[in-house]
Design a protein around this nucleic acid. Structure first.
Lengths: 198, 198
DNA sequence: ATAGTTACCGACCGAGTCGTCGGTTTAAGT
DNA sequence: ACTTAAACCGACGACTCGGTCGGTAACTAT
């Protein structure tokens, strides 16, 4: 049991830094000083290994970093702002960012592995559903303008988040985070209660 | 000459659909019915091949689809809206989207190949510079509110674009494009002249 | 004691990878 | 007709990859 978890944790770490196709099973094993036999005792294949990681580690971490923080009955705009701020700050500090992982893996597997894409899309849609739900609750609590299209806002927020992570990977992450958050806050003023939107 | 260009065009096509690390030189050669000899006569290595493609094809296409359309003295907001609309529409129709390519490659090479990352970042920063310039010109032409932070808007727009492309790759691209563009237009109302922003 | 199960080892296989190299064709120059 | 060089061929080497398999040590049940 502990072995499986060690393998998964290290696997996620390497897949995160080098990508799935660019990380070999031997790479993972070498870092753990373990053998091929141990690996194939616990997992059917490299793909199975990855899917286990997605379900056990990625899904839970996306939940705890991107979904849980925006639950509750407070103003969803404030919650989402705080959530993005936190997660981007940890990204600046080179900590593992599970939302970014999701976005990277979506790019890497898109059109290349249907099975894995399905699992990733499941996580994506859970995030989406929860965002929409949080926004709708915000509407009924009079935090959001009642003309707001919650699905559209959710799509827009997910886009913006994925995009800024790609961009931050390129150069000057700190400056880009700052600029991005500034504009996001501007955007949020639009959908706040008391503003009229279409 | 013609041979090199055929190779590069096919190379871009395959790297786009399968990724760089997941496409072998033999894959490209097989589709062209050409030999290893021909390949290594024209290019030093697979990496050299890719860099040539980036400089010759990707850079030019990014220019013609994302930069040229927003040049000129008209309202940059209108230009950018139209530009994004067009390029996302072609993405919906499964045509090759060079902005998306840029974003995919940024993910794929991030932390894995410094040399290639440098070339990609060059293209990225050309796009950024031109966006900022177009926005600044819009400010002096009174299309944009004069309090707008052009760098921040550019960062935000690039983020949003990259993100929505990642998201559209997942599922229901058409619906997501529609929702995204709707919110983008809302955002643009904020930075138009006559609105006050911070 | 013995038999069975769990967890693990690591040599090995075949397929595929990038890149090399000796050789061939084609076309132009003299 | 002869030389030369550009363009191209494809077998091959060196290596990496995911995955297999026969073996083994430790523990448990009987």
């Amino acid at each position: 049991m502990a072995t499986m978890q060690r393998m998964q944790a290290k696997g996620l770490e390497l897949f995160y830094s080098k990508g799935y196709y660019n990380t070999s099973v031997d790479d993972v094993l070498k870092e753990l000083s373990m053998s091929k036999g141990a690996f194939y005792y616990h997992f059917d294949s490299k793909e199975d290994f990855f899917i286990q990681i997605v379900q056990n580690l990625l899904a839970r971490k996306v939940y705890s970093t991107l979904i849980e923080p925006i639950e509750g009955h407070e103003n969803p705009i404030w919650n989402i702002t705080k959530c993005f701020e936190d997660v981007l700050e940890s990204a600046v500090n080179n900590e593992m960012d599970f939302g970014c992982l999701l976005s990277n893996f979506l790019s890497e597997f898109n059109g290349r592995n249907e099975t894995i894409m399905k699992h990733l899309n499941d996580i994506l849609s859970i995030w989406e559903v929860n965002l929409v739900y949080a926004l709708q609750k915000g509407k009924s609590n009079d935090h959001l303008d009642r003309h707001v299209d919650c699905e559209a806002v959710a799509t827009y927020l997910m886009s913006a988040y994925f995009g800024v992570r790609t961009l931050m990977a390129g150069a000057s992450p700190s400056a880009r985070k700052y600029r991005f958050m500034g504009q996001l806050k501007q955007y949020f003023r639009l959908i706040e209660a008391k503003n009229v939107t279409v």
